[in-house]
Design a protein around this nucleic acid. Structure first.
Length: 470
RNA sequence: GGCGAGUUGGCGGAGCGGUUACGCAGCGGAUUGCAAAUUCGUCUAGACCAGUUCGACUCUGGUACUCGCCUCCA
């Protein structure tokens, strides 16, 4: 079978992917901090690595791939959001608010990501369930001289790790020169980062050798990946913005705590999303969540298609025009595969495209080729490899074909017959008027030499307003 | 200031040292009473300047511009 090649940020080259153990391929992807609904930018890595997960399963077997994606449920942003809720009248104590906020956000995340046709990872650890592992790792780091205690904080000593900055190609001196944040005086070096910090009584906190406190952001990924995947695993993924400092810090922690492990072999980073050519930000007003799109009746399948139509290492621009194009393409394909059984196996060409550093745009080209060749069964089987044209994602299309009631159908058939009679009588004026009015009511006609077929358009302006005809 | 990515036809977007990307839109034809759908065909490329080469969109160097990260944000 095709050899998988992946671009490794660590070596800045595309490499043959050689799993440590083909019977147990291991991947870790940084998940969300759970304080708010996922936006479209959050969705890109989820869909990208879901596609990689599918490819790996296709190649190594369904049960041979372990995919871990964490939930960061302890974080200053979460605390800040909870404090905001309290200030706005929530009378519960902060910890109770935080618990509900994180639970709720996780439920939303699952809901929204499922709408994009993504599979659940095999493991979804919550940071707060791995505090003891984090504390243990911090203790090891202190013991080995890579971390120190200062004013109730535990800090990682970046100067104790020679390779610090290797992933992102940065040097400590350069970074200090460009330092823009005020330096906390308890740090030995401005670049030292927090492993553990004190927590006040009203905030979540855990007992530790350094007093009641909570973990810094980076340690959770090191601790959880070690626990679930081991000191050495195959792939670590995430957004490009995480490359520094988050991933750099993960490497420093993990490689110092387990010098023989080597941590992740392959590092993969997806590029960022822009909206209509601009960086997505709340101040520009071009910020939106996945839920916002779904609520606007943009099918999850359309969103997934768009996210896959640009290679993951290129910046991608989210535009209204792409929504319309993806919608049209999927409608065409859905119509083509209606009632068709998937071919027993996907086109080797689509697997080949994906195996080339996850060339999803190339894979979509193959789908176009299958569609224009009229190979509906092959199209369906191949699209399923990238999570498109699946049964789960087809509801938006099925809805339109299945919704009409008996009454609606009989009225539609009555008027289609009326039009046929008018046509036979060469009364084209009446025939066309019926056709145009039916379109307004939500019935799209298409004539062929033998019959007139129709399809429901639920977005029609005067849906079901039969009085327009009577 | 440091680090990195990119600049392909009207738009989106790939691969490739020499041969049609592909999709959308446009144009022309078939089909149709007219539409829609379908279908056939077709025009638009490779930021700029050098270099390597028999030959470069594809390799090398430089210039310009764009974007991202370095700061809560995937």
């Amino acid at each position: 079978m095709t050899k998988i090649k992946l671009y490794n940020t660590k070596t800045r080259t595309k490499e043959d992917f050689v799993p440590i153990d083909p019977a147990n391929v291991r991947m870790y992807v940084c998940g969300p901090t759970v304080y708010d609904r996922a936006h479209i930018g959050n969705a890109r890595p989820v869909v990208v690595f879901d596609t990689l997960f599918r490819l790996l399963r296709h190649k190594y077997g369904h049960y041979a791939v372990r995919y871990v994606r964490n939930f960061t449920d302890v974080d200053d942003k979460i605390n800040a959001r909870a404090a905001e809720m309290k200030a706005n009248g929530d009378t519960r104590d902060l910890k109770a608010i935080i618990r509900e906020l994180t639970d709720q956000t996780i439920a939303w995340y699952h809901e929204d990501m499922e709408a994009l046709g993504t599979l659940r990872p095999t493991d979804e650890p919550r940071a707060t369930e791995y505090i003891s592992q984090m504390v243990a790792m911090i203790e090891v780091l202190i013991e080995k001289g890579n971390a120190y205690v200062s004013e109730g904080h535990v800090l990682f000593d970046v100067n104790s790790y020679d390779a610090y900055g290797a992933l992102s190609g940065r040097k400590l001196e350069d970074m200090r020169a460009g330092e823009r944040v005020e330096v906390a005086n308890y740090k030995r070096d401005p670049m030292d980062f927090v492993l553990w910090k004190p927590s006040s009584d009203d905030l979540p906190g855990w007992d530790s050798p350094w007093g009641r406190g909570r973990p810094g952001w980076h340690i959770e990924c090191s601790a959880m990946s070690l626990e679930l995947l081991g000191a050495t695993f195959d792939i670590h993924g995430g957004g490009l913005d995480l490359q520094f400092p988050h991933h750099e810090n993960e490497i420093a922690q993990s490689c110092c705590a387990n010098p023989d492990g080597g941590f992740a072999n392959v590092w993969m980073h997806n590029e960022m999303i822009q909206v209509e050519g601009k960086k997505m930000s709340k101040s520009l007003g071009n910020f939106f969540t996945v839920k916002d799109l779904l609520d606007k009746d943009i099918p999850g399948e359309v969103i997934r298609f768009i996210l896959l139509s640009t290679h993951y290492r290129s910046p991608m621009d989210w535009t209204e025009k792409k929504i319309a194009e993806a919608d049209a393409t999927l409608r065409k394909w859905r119509a083509l595969i209606e009632g068709v059984e998937s071919a027993p196996s996907p086109s080797p060409m689509i697997v080949e495209a994906l195996a080339d550093d996850l060339n999803t745009a190339g894979a979509i080209t193959i789908l176009h080729a299958l569609a224009s060749a009229g190979d509906a069964a092959g199209l369906k089987a191949s699209a399923e490899v990238i999570g498109l044209l699946t049964e789960e994602l087809g509801h938006w299309w099925l809805l339109e074909a299945d919704t009409p009631t008996e009454e609606f159908i009989s009225k539609a058939e009555y008027w289609i017959e009326e039009r046929a009679i008018a046509k036979r009588n060469k009364d084209f004026e009446r025939a066309d008027k019926i056709r145009d009015t039916l379109a307004l009511i939500g019935i799209m006609l298409s004539d062929s030499s033998e019959e007139t077929r129709w399809m429901l358009n639920v977005k029609a302006e005067h849906l079901g307003e039969w009085e327009l005809l009577e």
